[in-house]
């Protein structure tokens, strides 16, 4: 179970102004502004849920994911994931979660994918038997058999994403964080990735939290949506809650963004 209670997080950012004079001025003095990435964010996610976490860029999505995956320490509030405080007990926590950052790769670029997997086996100290079983299952579900011997740099974006997802599940995590997993994928790969995530959830009861800009992802995958804007939770409900009278989900979200002025 994941609970976040009154979590706040703010950053200080240096201002940078354009222009010659401004650049000279900046040599001596720098101005800062405070950005509130999260304000009193609270929610609870139960085991086996699939939750879509949406909001415009800079709304606080990745701050939330970073806090839940133990990378970031919040300013205040309490966070508990299966009884652990992620940022206090990092190593024990991350052994139980899987994270996929859509725009970053955990695969070694120049060696066959299987070599990266072998390394992950040592990183997570996965017992041989569990590794073999998981690899076999992931290979057949994600259709990887052809790809495993190929260096990551030669894979298409869709193929690579399938491998990334497999890599993050080798150690049988209980919770999977997916940060924009379908970004830039072609239609076929998108469907394959969605299908797989669904199956993984049904088969192993993995809790899935995904951020995305693609509303079709949300429609296909999650029964629950959390909408965040300007660091605050604006809506927590089902996709049906979002759809008012037959509009497509894209239009509804756009309308919501406008309504909340984000």
């Amino acid at each position: 179970m994941i609970t976040m209670q009154d979590v706040c997080k703010s950053y200080k950012v240096a201002k940078r102004n354009a222009g010659f004079g401004e650049a000279c001025k900046a040599l001596f003095r720098r101005e800062y502004e405070t950005i509130h990435a999260l304000r009193n964010v609270s929610f609870t996610i139960n085991d086996g849920e699939m939750v879509g976490y949406i909001g415009p860029n800079g709304a606080g999505k990745s701050s939330t994911i970073k806090i839940l995956s133990g990378i970031l320490t919040p300013d205040s509030g309490t966070v508990l994931v299966d009884g652990r405080v992620p940022y206090k007990d990092r190593i024990r926590h991350v052994a139980q979660i899987g994270v996929v950052f859509g725009q970053r790769s955990q695969l070694w670029w120049d060696v066959p994918v299987i070599d990266s997997f072998e390394l992950l086996k040592d990183v997570y100290s996965i017992p041989q038997k569990q590794y073999d079983n998981n690899l076999e299952e992931l290979t057949s579900l994600l259709n990887l058999s052809e790809l495993l011997r190929t260096p990551a740099r030669q894979l298409s974006l869709g193929q690579r994403m399938r491998c990334e997802i497999a890599g993050s599940l080798l150690h049988s995590p209980k919770i999977l964080f997916l940060d924009e997993p379908t970004i830039g994928l072609d239609a076929v790969s998108k469907l394959a990735v969605r299908d797989f995530i669904k199956k993984q959830n049904e088969l192993h009861g993995t809790t899935v939290i995904l951020t995305t800009h693609d509303m079709q992802d949300i429609e296909a995958l999650s029964k629950r949506i959390i909408l965040i804007g300007k660091g605050e939770i604006l809506l927590d409900g089902t996709p049906e809650d979002l759809k008012k009278g037959g509009q497509s989900i894209d239009e509804t979200v756009a309308e919501l963004y406008r309504a909340y002025d984000i």
Partner: peptide, 9 residues
């Protein structure tokens, strides 16, 4: 030149 100034540090 401007780019150079940006990176004052």
């Amino acid at each position: 030149f401007l780019m150079g100034l940006q990176y004052r540090v």
